[in-house]
């Protein structure tokens, strides 16, 4: 399936997020994944959403126009590249070598393995770990800052 990731920068907190979600739902955008994060500290009103759409970029143009028209949205663009972030609970230590071989960055943080990389590579890493993955939460795909350029 052709996919297209959009990166939207917006302010206005929960109301703005509600409006964004309502627009996506109301216009029946083919949303495969949505990831929202803050751009600065907790007091910052600016948020970033990465919206993964199940359509090619040329079909996403209307969705870019619709989202751009929202008052709270400061910028929408097609994301050049995305990164998958996974928080996982993994048995053993083999994940380090597998991550290295898969081209995935992975570190342990308070017992949670945090891995990131190109979505396909992260999926391959998780598949290679197999049953050793007790639990995993995929946060992405997230648009890279500055579009990853």
């Amino acid at each position: 399936m052709a996919t297209c990731a959009l990166s939207a920068r917006f302010s206005g907190g929960m109301q703005a997020l509600s409006r964004l979600l309502t627009m996506m739902q109301g216009k029946r955008m083919p949303v495969l994944n949505l990831c929202v994060g803050r751009e600065a500290g907790p007091e910052s009103g600016v948020m970033r959403a990465t919206i993964l759409l199940g359509c090619p970029p040329e079909m996403a143009r209307r969705y870019v126009a619709l989202l751009s028209a929202l008052e709270d949205v400061e910028e929408v663009e097609v994301a050049d590249s995305t990164v998958e972030v996974v928080l996982s609970s993994v048995d053993g230590d083999e994940w380090r070598d597998l991550a290295s071989r898969s081209g995935v960055e992975a570190v342990e943080c308070s017992g949670t393995v945090v891995a990131s990389g190109e979505p396909g590579k992260v999926e391959a890493w998780l598949a290679a770990l197999g049953d050793r993955v007790e639990d995993a939460v995929r946060l992405g795909p997230v648009a890279r800052p500055e579009g990853g350029v």
């Binding site: 109301q15 509600s18 409006r19 309502t22 109301g26 929202l70 008052e71």
Partner: peptide, 14 residues
């Protein structure tokens, strides 16, 4: 009312 009218207002404020 803001939530209720999100789909058919151009914008809304609380």
């Amino acid at each position: 009312v803001m939530g209720m009218t999100l789909p058919f207002t151009k914008h809304s404020f609380l």
